[in-house]
Each structure stands twice: as C-alpha cells, then as structure tokens.
Design a protein around this nucleic acid. Sequence first.
DNA 1: CCCATATGGTCAATATATGTCCACCCAAGA
DNA 2: TCTTGGGTGGACATATATTGACCATATGGG
Lengths: 339, 339
Amino acid sequence: MSSFIEVSKKVLPDLLEVMQKRYDILRQVSQMEPVGRRSLAGILGMTERVLRGEVDFLKNQSLINVDNNGMSLTESGRQVLSEMTGMMKEIKGIDIKERLLAEKLGIQKAIIVPGNTDEQESVKNDLGKETASLMLSLFNGKNTIAVTGGSTMAKVAEAMIPHHLLSDLLFVPARGGVGADLNNQANTICAKMAERTNSAYRTLYVPDVVGNDMYQSMIKEPSIKEVLQQIKSANIVLHGIGDAITMAKRRETNESDLQKLKGACAVGEAFGYYFNEAGEVIHRVQTIGLQLDDLEGIQHVVAVAGGISKAKAIAAYMKRAPKNTVLITDEAAALKLLK
Amino acid sequence: MSSFIEVSKKVLPDLLEVMQKRYDILRQVSQMEPVGRRSLAGILGMTERVLRGEVDFLKNQSLINVDNNGMSLTESGRQVLSEMTGMMKEIKGIDIKERLLAEKLGIQKAIIVPGNTDEQESVKNDLGKETASLMLSLFNGKNTIAVTGGSTMAKVAEAMIPHHLLSDLLFVPARGGVGADLNNQANTICAKMAERTNSAYRTLYVPDVVGNDMYQSMIKEPSIKEVLQQIKSANIVLHGIGDAITMAKRRETNESDLQKLKGACAVGEAFGYYFNEAGEVIHRVQTIGLQLDDLEGIQHVVAVAGGISKAKAIAAYMKRAPKNTVLITDEAAALKLLK
DNA sequence: CCCATATGGTCAATATATGTCCACCCAAGA
DNA sequence: TCTTGGGTGGACATATATTGACCATATGGG
C-alpha cells in the first residue's frame, strides 16, 4: 500500500503546496532567527503581505514567536520543522531523486537538501547540518576522521553539536594549508570540530603544495610522520569538492599550470587532483596528506558540495570516487547532475 | 504515517477536513456512478456549487470522469479510493473519537494514543511522548508546571527532551510523597522533568497525608509556604488519575477508611480526592499541595491516564474536572469511556 | 415531443487574500 | 540626544476566489 503522502499528492496537491510554503518559512526562520518580515520575504521570494498572512497563521498555531525584534521558532515549531523535513523530501520527491542520484553517480548514497547554495548562503548551513547529523550516525566507538578545508567544511564544523554520548573521536586534517583564508583551512576546521565535539585533534603544519625535496624531508619529520600515519588510518573521510579554476587560483598556481588546466578543461578538484569532465586526472599537485588512492580502503567517505556552480565539479570527481562515498549536496546541483 | 497527520494538524489544520470531503465524494461517486451533481450534492449535504468546485478539481486530477450522463470514477480514482479507505478509517476514527470523547467528558480536548496500557507497557511510553509533546506546545515564556506522581507521570518525564531554547520553566510538585516507591513521587518526577528540560524545580518534602495539627504547623514553615505559593500560581497542571482502591492501598490507608471507600463504591482518585462513579467526592485525605478547587483558575490542566482498568476512574474524575482539561489516554480506555 | 436528468456557462454577491501606506517601537550609532 | 534602520501591527482599498443562483443545452426514454 502506498503511503499517506503518495495519496495526498493525488487527492490534495493544493494543500501540499501550502504545506511546502509554510515549511519553507519555518525553515528559513530557523536559519535566520530573529528575522523580520522584509528580509524574510525577500529571501523566500514572496511579497511581504502574503508572507505576513502566513506568519499570522503560524503565530496562531504557536509555531513561531514574534516580538519586537523579529520572528523566531518556538519549541514546538522547532519540533514540527524537524519532523517535516523528512516528509517534505517525500512530498517533493527528493527521496526519489536521492536514490536516482546515488545510482547515477555509482555511490552508496546521496543526500539532498532543498535550495541552491549559490543563491542562498543559508543553504550552506543546511548542508552543514545535514552532514553533521550524518557524521553523528557514523560515529561508533573509536573514530579517526580526516577532514579537508573549504568554506563548506567550515559550515559543517559550525553545525556540529556537542553530544552527551560521543564516541572516542580524533580529527585530523587531510592536508596542509591552502591559500590565505585561515578559517577555511583543514587545520582550523579540524580544531573547531574537535572543540565542538569535545574531542581530540591533530594539526599538520605544512604547506599544502610542496616541492619534491621538501616532500621527502618533511615526511621524515617525526611529528609530521605521526600525523600522516593517523591520516592513513582514518576510518572516516570528510571532504569537499572544488571548482578547478577557483581552487587553482586559491592555491596561487603559476600561470603555466593554470593554462594547462584550462587547456585540458579541468572542472573539478579534490585532494589536490584536478579532473576534466570525463573524470580523468589531468593534473595533480604534490601534496602532503591524504591521496586519492587512499580513499579506497576507508570505511566511510563523505563528500559535501552544493550549488549549480559545483555541479560539473561534482560530476567529474564522482567518476573517480570510491563506491562507498556518501554525497551531500543541494537540490540545485542535484537537478543539474540528474540532467 | 501518523506523524504526518500530527504535523499536518499543526501546519494545515484543515487538511483532514478537505481530505475527508474529497474522500466522501469519491466514495459516493463510486457507489452511485454514473451520478449527477444534484443528487450527489443532496446526499452529501453540500450545496451544488461547492460540490461543483470539488468535482472540477477531482476531474483535473483525473480521479473522476465526467460526461453527459454523469460522473464516474476513473481507474486511478478507483485505486486512490481503495487506498484511502483504510487510511480514512484509521485517521478519522481516532480523530472523531477524540472529539467525541472531549465532548462527552465536557473537556477541552482529548488525545488518544493507539493500544492498551494494561496490556502493553510500551503504550505507556506513547502516552508519555504524546504528553511531552503537548506540553511543549503549551510552553510559552514563563511557565510554572505543577506535577503529580504516578508511574504514568514518570513516563512523561522520561519522554521530555532537552531542547536548546526552552522557555523559562519551573516545575513544582503538586503534592508531597505517597507510598514507598521513590521513582514515582511527584518530587522525583519534578526533578527529572526539570533536569531533562534544563530548568528549575522545587521540592516539597512533606508527607502526602497529614493530620490537621501537622497541616497547620507545616503550612507556616517558610520553605513549605513558598513552594505552596508557587503551586497555587502554576499556570499548567499535569496530573494522573488513579484507581481508588489501588491508591488507597498505596497510601496505606487504614482499614476503616478502606472499608468506607469500598462501601461507597469509590472508583477514582485525583489530588487526594476519592470519587464514586457519579463523580461525587466521597472521601478526601487532607493533603498539602494542590486542591481540586484550585484547578478552576489554572490555565492548562493536563490529565494523563490509560488502560481499561482506569476507564472508570477517568470517567468518575472527569465529572468533576474543569472544562479546560486536556485528557491524554489510550484507545482502550477511550473506547470504554465512549461505551 | 417532452420531461427528467445531466453538464457547463455566466454573473453578481460575498468572502478572502493581497498591495500599500503609515504609525509606532526599539536599539545602535553618530 | 537625536537619527536611522530594522522591526511589528493596524487600516483600508483593491484584486482575486468562492459561492449562490439561474439558465442554456444535450440526451435518452416514455
């Protein structure tokens, strides 16, 4: 027998639309609280007046609170919101898209959050939350988690919550530093995740891109060697996927390499490997830390990236990704990936 | 699935109604097809025009066909109808019973969870969860909650979840200690609820049943006086309903009183008052704490009790209960209460 | 041929939703 | 202290939907 929701889709699609609208409001409020009508209406793309109608309704149902510095969710609103997320996926058919996407990319699982990271900063928070919650379900006894950098990963770190019954966690950076922005470095993110989960971490203070000589001497350094050891023994890898050109610029790649990448139509980057649309590695920077080949032996690989702008990068990388990858992305990217 | 309904009730309160209406139409059409608007409207008790609106809708969803000799179900309409039949029975069943029960008992609202507490321990957990979630929706700003004891209340405490942004809560025991079992004392339960919601609580360390002298001296004691004050100013009361004889035994009532209760056919107990089937107070133990009369002025009164064994007690107490009571019970008790 | 029963169109009345504007409150910053 | 920007909430005209009422018309059977 098909589910309640399936039947509802046929018998009351009009109401489900309303439900969708209210869900979007609740979700957005939870992201931005406290928030005023104007900004909310702007983001949700509805006129202020109609938003106001809905807000009045939600207020009457005591799902949101509104006082003189804006609206915020009530406890029961928060609860309703969290119960709704699953249903909305089913209503919007996201659950089906998740399955299709996982199948198409040949990976274990895909998780899709609504929205488009490129357009709404807050969707990145959702990616973070979803990832954090997935991680939680992966933790189990002793875990070593190798983490890469990037702004998305930074959001994941922010979304992690200290949990009473946390297992024994160790966070290690999967690689050295990239570019100038300290906040998005693997090292920094690692530390933040560890702090938020009350657990241990290691740092890898080496430049991300190294010459061969340096590489050889560094991997002999005991402190570095130890961390590298821990990276290889990680049972969870959490990484982002970058747009090739953006990453190259962030790495301050020299002009000739940049031209090479462009010439070969590089679209994606992960772990220092650059991929073209076919998923072929067309360039690789010598990095200290986790290598693409290391992924195969790792229990859980979690990739996070969203936004239409990253769709190509995701597609490219996924041709190479180990089958046990879980991808967390947003609706916009997912739709593009599914063509 | 039932959670979908629960959520829908909050986010789209009239979802069920609309669904019911459309279901009725489909069902009626299937019985009379081909049928015209006029006769259909007559039978369903709606005006022709509004029926027409629904019919247009159903036609668009291609659930019904309409041609010049009337309406009939399409294949997919037939299928949807058959899927809905089971659901509607279940949903509407409980929904209607809740309303009937509330009406019959003359209280604000009744909430019914499936099952029978007497037979399945787990149903008590459901009672607890449902109650906890109701409480959540009642919290709003500053709240003082007076709580009684009992094994059911203990389950409610267990079901309460620590929540990030809880309102400002204070839990106070509605009464002193009863019997030996520490876990089911109002004091203990209060403390547990406060702990689980990260909020404050008070304790009332006095015996539940007191003689007159003791009563007089105790209510002068400042620490006790203060708590009593807080009890009276509670805006939410959360209480159980007991079986008279069981409660009397738990209180180690003396033989003569016990005989008195039996003689007068006591069936229910709440707040130290014993009721017969007619809801008359036939005995009352002098207790420190909340009194039956205090309930009238309190904003929300939540009563929780389930199991066939408690049906009589519930019925008896409800004759006396304030109209603003919300009863949370199980299906077995509800059915018995509805005769 | 007419009647009963069917759908579909139309249009005014009415209810509801929406756009627009404004009053006011409060907190941060000049 | 004043201003400003962000917030809520009230008011009201106007658009848009819903509903009620009535009629045109098709069709099949007596």
